[in-house]
Design a protein around this nucleic acid. Structure first.
Length: 289
DNA sequence: AACTCCAGCAACCGCGTTGTC
DNA sequence: GGACAACGCGGTTGCTGGAGT
């Protein structure tokens, strides 16, 4: 037996709202409030609409101070950062963007931001290891490119470097299968490099190196104590031949769990294996730039 | 001009959670 | 503590308009 419908679907109007309906709903709520009961509201307001539909219309379009369109770069960064931290909890994300609705953010993410991000994260295949980050000077918008990637890595003092390089499950969902494989391969390359100590560290302020280095940006253990600034350390991969037969073979069959495990075991930092709250019960998180 | 395709977005659906009795 | 009602949320659908052919 299915769930009982929330209203009599035969006798309610569906589809786009007319200006008259909008006016009725807005007028009623401004004068009477919602009364805490959306089910009875449409009848009281003289509307032939489902209560849910009224609620959605009010929250997303009619209530005061709603903003639509023209997301700023700052908003992009916030959305990316929060998505990386908490996944697709649009209402929580919306709470951090004044005047934005969860529906708006969700649509924006699904239609624009996700594509923008994927394009950023998965440049052409020959840029091996640039799937995670690239600060190439040939980028059309180096600063936004850099900021967006940077924003994917939320700062949390309890999270160690090795944990940060693994994306939120939502990020993996967002990526296509091909991109996941690419990501896995890149992670595998990193793991191998870490294992063989064939990596070198260079700092963000080394502009000359930045223009050519391809690597994985980490909000690493060298972060300063300040909560508002984070020192980004780049793990510069040496010029290995990542198509080396053994490397290719060894990483092909790895799943993300295994890679996580490998990354964890190959780094010397904290052994704490909890990196993001996946339970969707904890709304607390930290947002840094 | 007519048609097709597709991105963008408004709205709906159904499930999990919360509140009330 | 169980049953029910209502709310809130995230995923999905389907309409619309613009771009391309």
């Amino acid at each position: 037996m299915g769930r009982a419908p929330c209203c009599d679907k035969e006798n309610v109007k569906r589809g786009p709202w007319s200006p008259e309906e909008d006016a009725k709903l807005k007028d009623y709520i401004e004068k009477q409030g919602t009364g805490g009961n959306w089910i009875t509201l449409p009848r009281k307001a003289g509307l032939r609409r489902c209560g849910k539909s009224c609620r959605l219309r009010w929250l997303n379009y009619l209530r005061p101070n709603i903003r639509h369109g023209d997301f700023t770069e700052e908003e992009d960064n916030i959305i990316c950062s929060l998505f990386a931290s908490i996944g697709s909890r649009w209402s929580v994300i919306a709470a951090h963007l004044h005047g934005r609705t969860d529906n708006d953010i969700k649509n924006y993410w699904n239609t624009k931001l996700k594509k923008k991000l994927i394009a950023t994260m998965a440049p052409p295949r020959h840029h091996h290891l640039s799937a995670i980050a690239s600060s190439s000077s040939s980028s059309p918008s180096p600063s936004s490119h850099y900021n967006m990637i940077n924003s994917l890595l939320p700062y949390d003092p309890s999270i160690s470097t090795n944990q940060l390089i693994t994306p939120h499950r939502g990020m993996m969902t967002m990526m296509g299968r091909q991109q996941q494989l690419l990501y896995q391969e890149d992670m595998g390359s990193l793991v191998n490099s870490l294992n063989s100590n064939k990596f070198a560290m260079s700092h963000q302020d080394d502009n000359q190196k930045q223009s050519t280095n391809k690597g994985i940006m980490l909000l690493s253990d060298v972060r300063s104590g300040s909560s508002t600034t984070s020192t980004v350390t780049r793990v510069k991969m040496e010029h290995h031949d990542y198509h080396h037969e053994e490397t290719e073979r060894s990483m092909e069959g790895y799943e993300m769990d295994e890679i996580n495990h490998l990354i964890s075991s190959s780094c010397t930092s904290s052994s704490n294996s909890l990196w993001f709250d996946e339970s969707k019960r904890e709304d607390k998180f930290m947002l840094y730039y």
